[in-house]
């Protein structure tokens, strides 16, 4: 059974300028996937200027079919708003699941557009959008 000192799934949210990063720790499965979907949708709703949503999977231990389903539901939300959905530090097992199920292309490869800052030039001056972002910004 689950170790008491180690909750099955925890989520932390790190907002940045035009980005939100969700850190996924533990098992993403039948019991916990709804939590991730709700949090992601809350982030999308709370920040209309969001460009990129990052899912940091470095400490993800497991992802079952309901976990995949939750990723698909989040993708549905981000793609309809034009938000880039990124998977970071995806462990091999997750990469394999996404590869076999044919949904790896749904996730934006490489570093975030919003984080490199390079793509902002085309969309007009970024500071205007950044005003809506809460102050603690880890990077530029």
């Amino acid at each position: 059974m689950t170790d008491l000192h180690c909750p099955p799934f925890t989520l932390t949210t790190e907002p940045g300028p035009g980005t939100v990063r969700l850190r996924l720790v533990g098992d993403l499965d039948y019991d916990t996937s709804e939590q991730l979907v709700e949090r992601a949708h809350d982030c999308l709703a709370a920040e209309p200027g969001l460009r990129d949503l990052f899912l940091d999977c470095a400490q993800l231990r497991l992802c079952d079919s309901m976990g995949v389903s939750s990723l698909l539901l989040i993708h549905r939300g981000t793609s309809s708003r034009g938000v880039g959905l990124h998977l970071e530090n995806a462990p091999d097992f997750l990469r394999r699941i996404l590869d076999v199920t044919g949904i790896l292309p749904l996730f934006v490869p490489g570093p975030a557009v919003g984080e490199t800052g390079a793509a902002h030039a085309q969309d007009g001056p970024p500071p205007a959008r950044h005003e809506t972002v809460p102050p603690p910004a880890p990077s530029g």
């Binding site: 995949v68 389903s69 698909l72 199920t101 044919g102 949904i103």
Partner: peptide, 13 residues
Amino acid sequence: TRGTLVGALPHID
């Protein structure tokens, strides 16, 4: 053989 899962995405290969 490879393909996309069914039932969740509007386009599949």
